[in-house]
Design a protein around this nucleic acid. Structure first.
Lengths: 238, 238
DNA sequence: GCAAAAGTGTTGTGTATACACCCATGG
DNA sequence: CCATGGGTGTATACACAACACTTTTGC
């Protein structure tokens, strides 16, 4: 068993990292959809765009850290947050375990971007580190897969929206066209939507009906493990 | 930025864990199938069964740690290994991030159990810690889901097997009966199997043809991210 | 010849795809 | 009246579930 503490020159007991222990950080892949396409929130680091990240302090849950990073980036409107994968990188001297999260923001929340991040188009984000690149690739893979069998697309739209707007989100994320009639049939068959009764007229054509997600389905989780929803403990201010 | 080193009473530089940094461990959920049912490898810890675990040393990848734990438990036959999820637990003083892995062993490899673990039936594993309990529940959920759309079941059988044996694996893991004809049609349609040409006679009934997984499909990964297959660096002996 | 597991097809039901036209509005 | 996007239905192919009998062997 390793010794975990030592006494320093002033006689204080200090906690040692047996130099065998990797550090942990949490990295967030935050997407939003704008007219210009699928955007990702990045912040500059060593002159290159990088994923927003933070190191947890002791006793702080991973979900809490991810939530804090998200708070940093956008206002506290509702958001979607899901753990993705953990990857180790670096080596002797600065080995790190990065726990990665996928997050989605409504376009409206992303407009006002108070945080340190700026929005890049996913197709032209600039050069990031190979680790961040892999994380983003995987996040996009998972996002696309999940569009098929969960309700996460709704988290990219304002509270109420038209079916055409919803379809546009699918098309932007999947990067391909979708058949209008089949799309609408699937959405209606899923039974997650309810008409608000209102409609929106914009432009010289028939107005579009507005829909919202039924409240019962608001926090759709599906295959996320039950224990992923651990309470977000409040933790020392930062 | 935090100070990461200090000088101790003998004047040596030591690495500090700012007492804000959680430790990392890797925990393995290792399943196998025997006549008696679905078994899980556990080892005693504080008088209770617990998941095999290890703490990575610096520069060691998470996958490498998981592989080492697996080596500890069973002989080095081929095995299946997949990262599951990361969970944080504990609090001030002993906060830990556990990265969990799902692993499958062929019954033959599990017979000779040289490691410190013993096999428990998943339905009667005894009492484990709440963290380990959640991890096991989730591992089982994922294993069951993955049976439907991947070839992982083959990792629970010897190299060549009969279709009835394969079906029995599905039934044990899913804990329900499966229709023989539909099962065989699906398996054949998947096109992953090839007949060895041989057959096995045991008991007073028609002999069963033997199949094996086509080599091209041996390391089926599907939704596992490409970068999950990072090379397993060799690391200081333990 | 009988017990015991291996092996094999058909039918219905639901789900996904391909595809083209009328509707309501603003200007 | 026309340009623009909103909204709707049908025919076809494919995947999945239910279901029962014949084959080959050991004894």
């Amino acid at each position: 068993m390793e010794k975990l503490t030592a006494v320093d020159q002033q006689g204080r007991r200090v906690r040692l990292c047996p130099n065998s222990v990797p550090r942990v950080d949490v990295r967030l892949v935050l997407f939003t959809v704008r007219e210009s396409g699928l955007l990702i929130a990045l912040q500059e680091r060593d002159g290159r765009p990088a994923l927003p990240r933070w190191t947890p302090i002791l006793g702080e849950s991973l979900d809490a850290v991810a939530t804090h990073i998200l708070d940093d980036q956008i206002g506290s409107s509702e958001r979607y947050l899901e753990q993705l994968y953990s990857i180790s990188h670096g080596s002797e001297g600065n080995g790190t375990v990065s726990v990665t999260y996928l997050s989605l923001a409504r376009a409206e929340a992303a407009e006002t971007s108070p945080g340190p991040a700026t929005w890049f188009n996913v197709n032209a984000p600039g050069e990031f580190s190979s680790v961040d690149q892999m994380i983003v690739d995987y996040a996009l893979l998972r996002l696309r897969a999940k569009l098929g069998y969960t309700a996460i697309a709704f988290h990219l739209l304002p509270r109420s929206f038209t079916l055409s707007e919803l379809q546009a989100v699918y098309e932007v994320v999947l990067d391909r066209e979708v058949d209008k009639r089949n799309f609408r049939r699937r959405i209606h068959a899923a039974g997650l939507l309810e008409a608000t009764g209102e409609s929106r007229r914009e432009g010289s054509h028939r107005p579009a009906r507005l829909y919202r997600l039924q409240v019962a389905h608001d926090t759709e989780t599906y295959l996320t493990p039950a224990w992923a929803t651990q309470p977000v403990r409040k933790v020392a201010t930062r």
